[in-house]
Design a protein around this nucleic acid. Sequence first.
DNA 1: CCTTGGTATAAGGATATTCGAATATATTTT
DNA 2: AAAATATATTCGAATATCCTTATACCAAGG
Lengths: 94, 94
Amino acid sequence: MVIEKDWVVVLKALAHPTRLRIVAELLQSTKCVTSMQDLLPASQANISQHLGILRGARIVDFTQDGAQRCYYVCRPELVGGLLDLLRDAPAPPA
Amino acid sequence: MVIEKDWVVVLKALAHPTRLRIVAELLQSTKCVTSMQDLLPASQANISQHLGILRGARIVDFTQDGAQRCYYVCRPELVGGLLDLLRDAPAPPA
DNA sequence: CCTTGGTATAAGGATATTCGAATATATTTT
DNA sequence: AAAATATATTCGAATATCCTTATACCAAGG
């Protein structure tokens, strides 16, 4: 199997607790940065930094709505599928 | 959705080109460290370190066969599923 | 027991991530 | 235009990751 460099970028972007929570929330519904502050224990600057990383991995994108940016997961099948697999993965045999 | 800390450990373990190649190879067939050296551009020590990380994430395990350790993916549905998703994921809309 | 082949670990320096603090930019409201 | 709101960026320090080198461990054969 050929490993694409892009895959590592995606995995690295998701391999952080805050970013994984962000995409999980965004899968439920699109959200602006301010409303994410109410859901996550992170500062505005930090959330914005994480969103920049997720955007760099082309996992999320946004639509501008006045001063707000409405973020959404731009590859929902991929991200949703990954979360499903992780949720349903049986614990490894001890 | 509740984000398990374990998920991040798994994602982090896979978010490295060498480790992703290791698990892709191990999905094909179990392999010992020496034979992985022929497949990957990495030193024995480095491969061993990566295997240690993958083992810490409970992604791989091994059976001892004399002096050799026969590594295998201990959660093939999870790892195989992740690779399938990445392979089939449509490029994000430009 | 000594050597050899297979694998793991320790130590170290280089590089990358992470997060807070401060600042910048853009948009709306007054 | 000034103030307030929403978001992004820059900088720096703490921390983590990565890889190389050297060394240790362990099992089998002689």
